[in-house]
Amino acid sequence: MEQAIFNDMMNNIKDENILNFVVVKDGKIVIDYNKKDEYKNKRFKVNSCTKSIISALIGIAIENKQIQDVHQPISDFFPEIKISGVDNRKRGITIHHLLTMTSGISWPEFGNWEFITHLVNSDNWLKFILDRPMEHNPGEIFNYSSGGSHLLSAIISKTTGMSAHSYAQKHIFEPLEIKSLTWMSDPQGNNNGGFGIEMSAYDMAKIGSLYLSKGKLEKDSLIPENWINESLEPKVLVSKALGYYGYQWWVKDLTVKGTSNTTYFAMGNGGQFILVIPSMNMVAVFISDNYEDSFRPIYYMKKYVLRMF
């Protein structure tokens, strides 16, 4: 570690709205920052990092043959979109479209977070989402949608007979010894697939480390390796600033000193991040309270973290 760069970062980070910052390199915690002592093991809302865990559960359910594959139409799980009078294009939406946020359903969330309050205040979240009009054909346009991620959570419940939380508890959380976690639900009991989890930075680091190890925990495969690879493969170019989107994971090259580091990350509004950098055998986690600049942790990664190792 370049001590001068580390010292510079630590001198600056105390003035930021970064509450927790953890870096795991070569399997060991090498940076462990808490803005306040009481934040060390505190559970925080990780917002849309929830989506990346939902993605893992879809892959596990496919591996367990509880879901056919990513091309299965969602009308298999929501037959109400097959009835007369419903836009026929909804019948063409598949799990793949939900995973890549290309369902075509009108969902003005990106840059208009207040829209989510209409979802949260509705009596039936699934009906609210499925009743939204179609804006594009499935597969045509990327449109950020927590609604689509919530449909994935409901699909997990419908196919496994377990809530997303219980399914994750069995297949991921218990093996990783993630014990302190809450996951809010909609009025019908479906765990919020878009932004419902509260967990600690250290437990987020365990999720990142599991992806770094291609889903393996010692000799056990918790998430199928082929699913990890497929999830982290760039599917849709979102923008130059944000990079690509895979299956509920972002993919972006962070270039420092002429070296490009392909980085996979879960990202939540306000500056919540799980960043996986395979070329450096590294995972970095940020918990922030910075809703004016959610992408601030990317600046810290490029200016400091990737330069100090």
Score class of each variant (00 low, 15 high):
5 I>K: 14
11 N>Y: 02
13 I>H: 03
13 I>C: 04
40 K>V: 10
48 S>D: 01
50 T>E: 01
52 S>N: 02
52 S>R: 03
66 Q>N: 08
66 Q>W: 08
71 H>S: 14
76 D>V: 09
78 F>E: 04
81 I>Q: 05
90 K>W: 08
93 I>R: 02
95 I>E: 03
96 H>N: 04
112 N>D: 13
121 N>H: 11
123 D>V: 06
126 L>G: 05
131 D>R: 09
136 H>M: 04
141 I>M: 08
148 G>I: 05
150 H>L: 12
151 L>K: 10
152 L>N: 05
158 K>T: 05
162 M>A: 10
169 Q>P: 03
173 F>I: 02
180 S>K: 15
189 G>H: 06
191 N>R: 03
194 G>W: 00
195 F>G: 06
211 Y>D: 00
214 K>Q: 04
218 E>A: 12
222 L>M: 09
228 I>Q: 00
229 N>W: 01
231 S>R: 00
237 L>P: 05
239 S>V: 14
240 K>R: 14
242 L>A: 12
245 Y>N: 12
255 T>D: 07
256 V>Q: 03
260 S>T: 15
270 G>W: 10
272 Q>Y: 06
274 I>E: 07
274 I>C: 05
281 N>G: 08
289 D>M: 11
289 D>R: 14
296 R>F: 14
301 M>R: 06
302 K>T: 13
303 K>M: 11
304 Y>D: 06
308 M>E: 10
